[in-house]
């Protein structure tokens, strides 16, 4: 495969490896289980959101409202639980948040699949509406007294321990949520006709209609599914931070989309891989958490991420444009 070297995934993987090498050289403590577990923890919420954003990009749309969906689902679930059923077990809390997220996603689907409106316009609108509704009608207090089982979940770990050098590490069960989301999404995308239809409408909506793909139904699925993933990511975020903060998450949407685009998904639709998306997330998380290790002040974070996007996506786009001009 000659395309292997020009693919975004490869490019991102190379940058990640380089970053780690430089980091390990400048700080011997970088390559430890502790760093790894910290980075993994930081990737969970971002990763789940990114998988959702990728699905939308593949289908030929763009969703910027998912952070508002996530924070709304999380905060409303917390409020509900505290008010009516503080003893709810964690899996019911999670289910409620996922359902709320799916419901908010269905509102996006109504406008996009139902009325045929442009996805960016719709989700820009719902981003504001969802968040505004949350802060105005549900509440704007940070809640640190979470339902007990939600707090409990964040303490459940797959593995924990202390390294020989005395550093503490742990792997929370919320990591399993990311793994499950990845596996489920990969299955849908590659093993079901629904998933192939998502790729197809991203490739060409008109062709999809002509061969009898139900474009609306496919879009409804995409936006509801993304809403559900956002609901899950939101409640995980609240649980892991041990605080329901209605001001959190919103603002992250562009970082998430950046991660997905870095991983090779194209804004025109039809392209995107889970591997690429996860690599993109890994790179963004590395930059956000460890830039200081390689001697770049953390104020340079957004500059670095921006430069990576320009390079990582601009280069292939430029090459494609050159090729098109030659074929002209």
């Amino acid at each position: 495969m000659t395309s292997l070297i020009t693919r975004n995934e490869t490019l991102v993987a190379v940058v990640i490896v380089l970053f780690c090498i430089i980091a390990a050289v400048s700080d011997p403590n970088f390559l430890t289980v502790t760093t790894l577990s910290d980075l993994l923890r930081a990737s969970i919420v971002l990763g789940i959101l990114a998988v959702g954003a990728m699905l939308v990009l593949i289908s030929g749309g763009i969703d910027v409202s998912f952070t508002a969906v996530a924070v709304s689902a999380m905060y409303m679930t917390t409020k509900f639980s505290l008010a009516f059923a503080p003893e709810m077990p964690w899996f019911l809390i999670f289910t409620l948040s996922v359902l709320l997220g799916a419901g908010l996603g269905a509102i996006n689907a109504l406008f996009i699949a139902g009325f045929g409106l442009p996805t960016l316009i719709v989700t820009l609108g719902t981003l504001s509406v969802f968040r505004g509704f949350l802060l105005t009608f549900v509440g704007s207090d940070r809640i640190s007294a979470l339902p007990p089982d939600m707090r409990e979940f964040s303490r459940m770990v797959i593995a924990r321990g202390t390294t020989e050098s005395g550093d503490f590490y742990n792997l929370p069960w919320s990591l399993a949520a990311l793994v499950a989301v990845v596996l489920l999404t990969a299955f849908i995308l590659h093993k079901t006709m629904l998933g192939r239809s998502i790729f197809a409408i991203g490739g060409s909506v008109e062709s999809a209609r002509r061969i009898g793909i139900n474009v609306r139904r496919t879009q409804v699925f995409v936006y509801v599914y993304v809403g559900a993933l956002a609901g899950l990511a939101g409640i995980l975020h609240g649980s892991m931070n041990r605080m329901a903060d209605p001001f959190s998450l919103v603002g992250l949407e562009l970082s998430v989309i950046a991660a997905v685009v870095l991983g090779g998904a194209r804004l025109i639709g039809g392209y995107g891989t889970i591997t690429g998306t996860l690599l993109g997330v890994a790179l963004i998380v590395l930059v956000q958490n460890s830039l200081i290790v390689i001697g770049i002040p953390s104020t340079w974070q957004s500059v670095t991420i921006g430069a990576l996007i320009l390079l990582g996506t601009g280069l292939p786009a430029y090459q494609a444009k050159r090729a098109a001009a030659r074929a002209g």
Binding site: G203, E206, Y271
Partner: peptide, 9 residues
């Protein structure tokens, strides 16, 4: 005339 294929598949 445009074949209605999916370029990405």
């Amino acid at each position: 005339q445009d074949f209605s294929l999916f370029p990405n598949l």
